[in-house]
Amino acid sequence: MAVSSLSLSLVPRTFKDKLNEPRWSESPRASELPLHHAIACSCDRTTGFDEESDCKRRPLLLGVVGSLTASLLPASSLLAQEMPANYRAFVDLSDGYSYYYPSDWREFDFRGHDSAFKDRYLQLQNVRVRFIPTDKKDIHDMGPMDEVVSNLVKNIYATPNQIANIFDTQERTVDGRDYYTFEYELRSPNFASCSFATIAVANGRFYTLTVAANERRWRRVRNKLKVVADSFKVLDI
């Protein structure tokens, strides 16, 4: 599949559908585990974030991770790590991916995406994940990193009235999976945003995680959002 022909709008089901699925209010038995959940870690209660109501919806806390590791083998490498302070983990075992997001962000339904979280006050500060089918087996099958990133940013992410600038590209391998992570800016006459994106190929899918902020705040939040981009992992399904 040529990168320039990718249409990143196909998703099997909406995040809203996911949020309507059952949640657990206590430690579930292994056979009853839902296929996706968020894991709380070091929440900052001074933010005013309604942690109690959120944990009713996504109650799998770090305290029960040890007893669940055997039943969460696809996600075990994520759960075994020490989560950064003031982040949570979103793990979707049914669609095969996981990532960290700031603990004071809230989930929302971002059109065309499988999952998404945003800052409760600054909606342009958000993370979202989408995927499309592909016959490729690895991100290297898409082409050289610089060409893949350039085609995505300039031909797919940018609209006709935006100027795209790519600042940095990185490649990493985790548990035998290859990832490209890149930083870019989209600038229009009246507005500019900056983003990190991490892309990977697995499970017959081309996955994209994007975490973004207003260009004026980028320098202040860049390191915080880089943690999100670097945490993205694909899982076997």
Rank of each mutant, 00 (worst) to 15 (best):
L186Y: 04
D50E: 11
V228T: 00
Y184I: 03
A89C: 07
E171D: 10
E183Q: 07
N86P: 03
E171S: 12
D119K: 00
V211D: 01
S53T: 11
L152F: 15
L225H: 02
Q81I: 14
F196A: 00
A80E: 14
V153H: 00
C194E: 05
H37G: 07
F90Y: 15
D54E: 09
D119V: 03
A164V: 01
E147H: 11
L122M: 12
D175C: 11
S9H: 14
N151Q: 15
L122Y: 11
N151G: 06
N223P: 01
S5I: 08
D109R: 03
L6N: 08
F196W: 03
Q170M: 14
L122C: 13
F191T: 09
E183P: 00
W24Q: 15
T159W: 10
V127R: 02
P59V: 11
L209T: 00
C43W: 12
F117C: 04
V227N: 03
L8Y: 00
W105A: 00
S7M: 13
I132N: 03
L6Q: 10
D141E: 14
K137A: 03
S77V: 14
D236T: 09
R120L: 13
V91L: 05
I237T: 06
S27P: 07
R58S: 07
S150W: 12
A75E: 02
E32W: 09
K16I: 14
D109A: 14
Q125Y: 05
G112C: 10
C43A: 08
C55V: 12
D109V: 12
M83V: 08
Q162Y: 12
S53R: 11
R205N: 04
H113D: 00
V91N: 01
F49Y: 06
R177I: 10
N126I: 04
S25P: 08
Y184S: 05
Y99R: 00
T46M: 01
Y207S: 02
V91M: 06
A30M: 12
D104R: 02
E52I: 13
A202I: 08
F15L: 08
I132T: 07
T181I: 10
D135A: 06
V65P: 02
P12I: 14
D168R: 12
L73Y: 13
L35R: 13
R216E: 10
